[in-house]
Simulated scan of single mutants.
Amino acid sequence: MEIDGRDLKILALLQDDCRIPNAELAQRVGMSASACWRRVRALEEAGVIEKYSAQISPAGIGFDFHAIVHVHLTRHDPDRLGEFIRAVENCPDVQECYATTGQADYHLKVMCRDLEAYNHFLEKFLFRLPAVASAQTNLVLRTIKNDPSLAR
């Protein structure tokens, strides 16, 4: 699917407020409501719009502990690697996971209620995975920028 200027405007508006009524979205983009609705559906079907969600304040629901964890694997055995990936995908404490180049094999964004919950995450989850050799934790002291917007 080729993305044009109107698509980018639709995406930017939806990223800003995914609950915007279709009639208002259409008016702001300069399209008819039915044409706008068809365009949004096409963006959804093409996988450009993956899902709609609410952005929640972690502190607002008691998640005051935020860390970036650099994970080193013992080796890249396909079975152990698959087990690691499945476990991380299913762990609610892990918000994001990236396979990267550099010293660490994976980088995890982990959010917990407090230090005790994070210690539980390490001892009962991460260090029990056979593929994990070690992990280094960097505590997030404050967030400078958190903007998931792509369409600008």
Rank of each mutant, 00 (worst) to 15 (best):
K124S: 05
I85A: 08
V40Y: 04
A131F: 02
L14H: 08
E44V: 03
F84K: 00
E24A: 03
I61A: 02
R6A: 06
D17S: 09
K145E: 11
P92R: 05
G5L: 07
L13P: 08
Y52A: 00
G30A: 02
G47W: 11
R38M: 08
L115I: 13
D7N: 06
I85W: 10
D77Q: 03
Q103E: 09
P130D: 04
D114E: 13
K124L: 00
E96Q: 09
P92Q: 05
S32P: 14
R152W: 14
S34R: 15
R152S: 11
K51W: 12
R75S: 07
G60Q: 11
Y98E: 06
T100V: 13
K51E: 11
Q27G: 04
L81T: 13
Y118T: 07
V48Q: 01
A33W: 14
D93A: 12
F127N: 07
F84G: 00
V132K: 04
G5F: 10
K145P: 00
E116F: 11
M111F: 14
N90R: 14
F125E: 00
Y52N: 00
N146H: 14
F63M: 10
D16V: 06
H72M: 01
E83Q: 13
P92L: 01
A99Y: 14
P58W: 13
I61Y: 13
H70L: 01
D114G: 08
Y52Q: 00
N146F: 13
N22P: 03
E96T: 09
M31R: 09
T101C: 04
H120A: 05
A135T: 07
R80I: 02
R75H: 13
E89N: 14
V88L: 01
P58D: 10
V140L: 12
T74Y: 08
V48H: 07
P92W: 09
H70S: 01
D7G: 04
N90D: 13
V94Q: 03
E2V: 10
A54T: 14
A87Y: 13
I68F: 14
A23R: 15
H70W: 04
D147V: 10
N90A: 12
G62V: 05
A59W: 13
V94N: 06
G47H: 09
F121E: 03
V132N: 05
A59L: 11
L129T: 09
S134D: 10
I10M: 07
R6F: 12
R28A: 04
Q136F: 11
F63N: 05
G102Q: 10
D7C: 03
A135K: 07
R80S: 05
Q27S: 09
S149K: 15
F65S: 10
S53Y: 15
